[in-house]
Design a protein around this nucleic acid. Structure first.
Lengths: 192, 192
DNA sequence: CTCGCTTGTCTAGCGGTGCTAGGATCGAGC
DNA sequence: GCTCGATCCTAGCACCGCTAGACAAGCGAG
């Protein structure tokens, strides 16, 4: 059995390599540059090898998105942990979210902009996505206000953050004012 | 001169045909289906004709986006006009915005999701885009609240709407609750 | 230790993409 | 009626995602 185990380990290792390389390449040169040929060359295997791990390019994007969701959940929780009180927590969360999107644009695209073939807000939603939402809910739920469903409030707050993140990164909103916009959002939406 | 004028007219007419066909095709089958070959076939010309009007596919997307921006500005203004009082106006505006995004997904993508090579929030931003933002500002500026810059407030409100629109359409948010989310957003963000 | 077979990988290629060079055609102006 | 320039199309380039089929490596059985 040891031989098979080793092979399985190597296979899993190579799969991680593919995802990490795709993420790196996308972050360096944008997702347009992530072609199956270039990706195969970087991992020093031929193209068809990719298809023995993933059904297609879409699934590779999906894998990067899941990895990114886990990272984002961790970043948001870490930020919330360092803050005292609901208001500071929400502010820290918002900053962490926007910061993550700004620093990892390709990963953020994989999560929300591109088609990674992932299901959302459904039963078969992958665990990392549900957990990322849960990370938001933990801090945002406590400022939803009376009579407002915490989940619904989190959705709205999240949507606002998502809008700010994408519009800023697309050059639709000048980035200098990000902090003021964040403050306004927290001041108005959160019930403190 | 009459001959040249006729030719110019026909050329302009054909350009409109290209943009309208691209929009129609995108709305029917998604932007992935809008290839230069299919587009050329639909307008009953050969591919290179497209390139005598536009620098490339990106510019065609940009043209659809500009057309969409004008439509959206009109839709938003029309909705705001029918409502009495600031609060009703803002609610109507929000509904009209989300409705436009839901009813014209391909156009909305051209405006905000895809790369149409358009500049935003800059001097050389095309007029229709500036005007669409102005249409939002007209109704939203009056509920910004004291001491809050109307432009900044509009940016935040717009970002929230954009987030709701994209996340909903991408299946990230269940569409049944759209109205409740809209209400929450208006209640909290607008100062009435 | 050798042989056969499974497993894994690669080469080569398909149909499609955006885009363009260069030749054919057509019609305006003399 | 002829010339010549504007206009358009045919053909093709390099690249894309994806896959069939040839080939080699390494395992287990005899």
């Amino acid at each position: 059995m040891s031989v098979q185990e080793r092979k399985q380990r190597e296979r899993a290792e190579r799969e991680r390599l593919i995802v990490a390389t795709a993420r790196e390449l996308a972050e360096q040169q944008g997702w347009d540059a992530v072609t199956t040929r270039r990706l195969a060359e970087r991992i020093e295997y031929s193209q068809p090898v990719l298809y023995s791990h993933f059904r297609g390019k879409r699934e590779i994007i999906g894998a990067v998105a899941l990895e990114g969701a886990a990272d984002m959940a961790a970043a948001v929780r870490a930020a919330a942990r360092t803050a005292d009180g609901p208001r500071a927590r929400v502010t820290a969360l918002a900053r962490a979210y926007l910061d993550f999107a700004a620093r990892n644009p390709a990963v953020y695209d994989a999560m929300f902009q591109l088609d990674g073939g992932l299901a959302f807000a459904q039963e078969d939603t992958p665990e990392p996505l549900k957990d990322a939402f849960a990370a938001l809910l933990e801090s945002l739920g406590e400022v939803a206000g009376d009579g407002v469903h915490p989940g619904l409030f989190t959705e709205v707050f999240w949507a606002a953050l998502h809008g700010l993140a994408t519009l800023t990164r697309a050059g639709r909103l000048p980035p200098e004012e990000t902090e003021r916009r964040t403050q306004l959002l927290v001041d108005r939406l959160a019930v403190l």
